[in-house]
Structures are given as structure tokens and as C-alpha cells.
Computed example of a mutant assay.
Amino acid sequence: MKLTRRIPVTAPGQAIDLLVQACPELSKGRLKDAMNKGAVQLVQGKQHKRLRRAQSEVSSGAVLELHYDEDILQRKAPEPVLLADERSYSVWFKPAGLLSQGNEWGDHLALLRQVEQHFTNQRPVFLLHRLDREASGLVLIAHHKTMAATLSQLIQQQRISKTYRITVLGKVLPALLQQGEISLPLDGKACCTRFNFAAELQNPPRTVLDVALISGRKHQIRRHFAAVGHPVMGDPQYGQGNQDAAGLALQAVRLAFELPGKGLREYAVPATLLR
């Protein structure tokens, strides 16, 4: 079952009672589960926030929004791995299949929510950058606003070095390897992907590359390599002949940055988690 409800609140009451009244096709238990998994939002003016407590009091003039998808709510998320807890921020390994953050249909399948729960909601969480759902690798999460601002500024200034390991279809010819970059505009904007040779695989022929993004357009690595005839293996959206039962061969494997007053910080995916 999949449904959406927008419920204007005309008289104050408990959230669960208002939802039960507006959604008779769903049991109270299912509605509570949807709330717990982030599928209910409270809208007050321009503010949207997830409403998880069934007994939350809702004021007149507010709006409850329910986005219920039984299939999504029944899914179980793969678990992320905490690689470093630096108190003001943490570094996580996001497995393939896990969203970076939730959407209107809930957030129980998202890294950000799982990090909140890991710290038993005792720390704020700020997502600083994203990985595609199909991709895996390192993600930085800040735990207070000052650190979030500091790390966000480093990202904007391209002072956080990110290395991605990909496996692409076919043998990349020496001329392209020597060129070492793809500078094709995407969405009408200039962008550049730089790469180095890492290994060559056979049966079928594939090439492993280490990649650095000089810009950050949507799906930039995947789109660039598909455009030059070497789509990323396992990519469900870009390229042909690159199917791979192991999934998308794109992993964020290294982060490095100078943290003001604290020096160089480097993080890498451990060998046990490398694709």
C-alpha cells in the first residue's frame, strides 16, 4: 500500500489520533511505525520536521504530512560502520544500499538517522556531503554547528581531498590514461574528473582507477566515464554492458584535510571493507 495524506489541523490534539482519523485504511500500529521511521512530518509555516512521538501534541493551524509506502517501511537498512569518533565529528563507512539522508518517505534507510540512533540522540548530526545510494565509502558527519561550518567551508574551498576507487568496463587506452582527466561539461557547467591507473582486470576486461573530483556535479564520475565509453561496473543508470551482480564499483576510499589548529587528518577505508 502506498498513500499520501496532507492533514490540516483544525483543533489541537495528539498526532496519532489525528492520523487515525484521517487514515482509516491504516491501523494505529502501522501509523506509529511510520512515525517512528520518519514518514510523518509536522509543517508549521515554512518549518518541516519529522514527528516521531505518537503522543505529540499538535496545535491548530499546523499540518501533518504522511507519506506511507509499505514496501519502503518494511525494508531493512544495511548497517554503517563507525571508523573514527572525533567527538566534534565522526567518520563513517556507508555501505551500498544505504541512503545518505532520508526523504519524505522516511529516514530509517538513511545513514544520518542511523548515526543519530548510534549516539542515542545525544548528539546533533550534520551531513556534510553525500554518496549515491548505490555507492559505498567514507562520509563525514559533524556533531555541532561550529564544526559543521568549518568542515563545510573546507569542502567549498576544495581543501578536503577525496579519493574514489572505481572499476570501469574495458581496458582504458594509454592515451586516455596519460591525459589523466575528463573535462566534459555536465548540465551546462564546466567540470573536471582526474584519475590515475590502479590495476587491470580480465574476464571481462576492466580497469581499476583512483579518481579525484575537481568539481562536484550530480553523478559526475559515473556520467563522465560512461561518456568516454568506460562506464563504471554495476552502474544501474549509466552505460551499457557494465552489469555486475556485485553492485556499483564506486567507493569513496580516502579523506584527507588540514583541520585548523589540529593539523592533518587522514582517513581510509580498511582493507576488510574495500570492494
Rank of each mutant, 00 (worst) to 15 (best):
G13Q: 08
Q14D: 04
A15Q: 08
A15K: 13
L18H: 13
V20P: 00
Q21P: 01
Q21E: 15
P24C: 10
S27N: 03
A34S: 02
G38N: 02
A39Y: 00
L42H: 08
L42C: 08
Q44P: 00
H48N: 12
K49E: 14
L51G: 07
R53K: 15
A54G: 08
Q55Y: 05
Q55L: 10
S59H: 05
A62D: 00
L64H: 06
H67D: 08
H67R: 05
D71G: 04
I72V: 14
A77M: 10
E86P: 07
Y89K: 11
F93R: 06
L98H: 13
L99R: 12
L99W: 13
N103H: 10
N103K: 06
G106H: 10
L111D: 06
Q117V: 05
H118M: 10
H118L: 14
N121T: 00
R133I: 11
E134Q: 14
S136K: 13
H144P: 01
A149N: 14
L154M: 07
Q158G: 07
R159W: 02
S161H: 15
V172T: 10
P174E: 08
Q179C: 08
Q179N: 14
L186K: 05
C192W: 00
C192E: 02
N196S: 14
N196H: 12
R206M: 14
L209S: 12
V211Y: 02
A212R: 15
I221A: 10
R222V: 08
R223D: 02
H230D: 08
V232K: 12
Q237Y: 15
Y238Q: 04
Q240K: 15
D244P: 01
V253S: 00
A256N: 05
G261V: 05
G261C: 03
Y267S: 00
